[in-house]
Nucleic acid binder design. Structure first.
Lengths: 330, 330
DNA sequence: TTGAAAGCGCTAACAA
DNA sequence: TTGTTAGCGCTTTCAA
């Protein structure tokens, strides 16, 4: 199984030409005499020669791959982003190298540093405070960032989370809800934007919003927080969750506790993960167009790598998807 | 932003030593005189020197990264596998390079060939017929494969799908079902194993099983196939699906069509994706321990890379998870 | 303990 | 159209 791998020199020797010629031939850099072309084609096939991308990259400085680091690949929101970015990368002849930080900001730096030297550019979804992100600029690679930034000036792709928050709050108040609550995830940058959007809408109508917080944006946490919210002294009539995963867990546990949904409480989330369609009741949510985010980020990065100018920020508009988990309280 | 990146030569020059010394120092290969050690440490920090893994790999032949190609990253089953493999890779100081073939066997070969030259080994989840897989051995890299193989002799990690099929069929017949159906995905190797397990159990009891097939193992396909199964002349009283995604879609559509679950039909799937807990009714399924599959595959590959002998096949036992989607028909 | 020198496999001028 | 030559940034004998 381990017969020696053929190098460009082996090919050159066998074909009786120089390595430079082989190199040019393999890269289709120019035209060749029929004689050379035929021999080379034959020899390459015979030896099973494939160029070594490592050596290639070392010289050209290009790896033909891009890195993408996400927070949690098992969250469908991120899986969709990866899927979108992967498709675009492939289309452009790039390989996507994935990093998964597992919602642990400690892992981000080493991972990104390792990744950065193997790729031509990076797409980053980070949980780091903006103040601690300076080192990213030292990576010496084109970067595309997900989310809004206030201090740093990086190319980025962001959803309008403020608007999304406003939309879902607007929807709920129009349905006649008076006591809303928000189950948030304060470690996330976007959490604040969503909450602000919600508040902007509700404040204008003098409606209150109770705020709860979680440690992880997972369905397990949604389940865990349910009793606190539903069995406390001030039960809300509608709950907006930071994401669909939290909403899924919450809904499940609420029903286990004996509540009826959406009769006792309306629930909405963010992300529009595929599985929101299959819960009971189906989940109202703000579609952030995850796959499109991945697509846009990859396109932007590739454009930067190719030296094309790109807008500094690409905003992706949210859409409200209304399903049966939110209902009229009139 | 683009100040020149420091090389080993810059460090050597600045410190007044040879590049060989720097190299050894960086790799902690031996001991040094205090003087050299202090200067080197200072210079490296000052210049912000980090060794270039590309050049390093070229010489050593090791990349410190492994490749993993999966069929569809947006299927939670694969996301879990990635998660498991990623964790182990990180623990061993390896970076995981992910490839997503998107259920398109055409993409597998180019993807794997591109990946193979950048990594020290590959973990492969493939949809290719075994007869067409010869080229994988030409990759000249340690390989770990997912699933059973009949002709090729590769290290692999496989769930006992036959047993899983038997378990779920056994469960359903014990509940008194008489007219079972199987919604399969014949493009998958494991489809046949599951079906055989089901048949082994049902044949022994002279119970029939109607077989349907899909093009994609997705929830959309499950929805699409529902009417065919439920509105045909021979409606089953229990349905086993190739995976949970199909089951989710099927259950949703069945209820849209006006059927009651599990009263009208019991449904079960394979994979035990997280979201099976949140459907209505919650889904009975065969837990394939996806994350553990990723863990085992990564451990096996790393062991092979390190030259340690490993068993040729690691089998992961399935577990039946009984939830409310299957019910007694007695 | 340190260094000189010879590459790893490839590309990029520049010459022929 | 083809070849010569000089590296890319690093490691690895082998000798000092």
């Amino acid at each position: 199984m381990k017969k020696k791998i053929a190098t460009i020199r082996d090919v050159a020797a066998a074909a009786g030409v120089s390595t430079a010629t082989v190199s040019k031939f393999v890269n289709g850099a120019q035209r060749f005499s029929p004689a050379v072309e035929t021999t080379l084609r034959a020899v390459i096939k015979d030896l099973g020669y494939v160029s070594n991308p490592l050596a290639q990259s070392m010289i050209t400085g290009r790896t033909k791959s891009i890195g993408l680091s996400v927070l949690d690949i098992s969250n469908p929101h991120f899986a969709s982003i990866v899927k979108g970015a992967n498709r675009i990368s492939e289309q452009h002849g790039y390989t996507l190298l994935l990093g998964n930080t597992g919602e642990n900001p400690q892992r981000e730096r080493p991972l990104l540093e390792a990744l950065s030297r193997r790729v031509d550019g990076l797409i980053i979804f980070s949980r780091m405070p903006e103040a601690e992100m300076e080192w990213m600029l030292q990576l010496q690679k084109p970067l595309v960032f997900f989310g809004r930034l206030t201090q740093m000036h990086l190319p980025r792709v962001a959803s309008d989370d403020h608007r999304g928050g406003y939309m879902v709050a607007q929807h709920l108040q129009a349905l006649g809800h008076k006591k809303m609550a928000y189950l948030g995830f304060s470690k996330s940058r976007r959490n604040d934007e969503r909450l602000e959007g919600i508040r902007e809408c509700l404040d204008a109508r003098s409606l209150p919003v109770a705020v709860y917080d979680t440690d992880m944006p997972s369905s397990m946490e949604g389940e865990r927080m349910c009793s606190t919210i539903m069995l406390g002294p001030d039960r809300p009539d509608a709950l907006i969750c930071y994401n669909d995963l939290l909403a899924l867990g919450f809904m499940k546990e609420a029903q286990t506790l004996g509540f009826r949904l959406p009769t006792d409480i309306s629930v909405a989330g963010f992300d529009n993960i595929e599985f929101g369609r299959y819960t009971y009741p189906p989940l109202t949510t703000v579609d952030l167009q995850s796959e499109q985010m991945g697509v846009s980020a990859a396109e932007k990065l590739l454009a930067i790598i190719d030296g094309k100018a790109t807008d500094d920020i690409t905003t992706i508009e949210p859409r409200l998807i209304v399903r049966a988990s939110t209902v009229n309280r009139a």
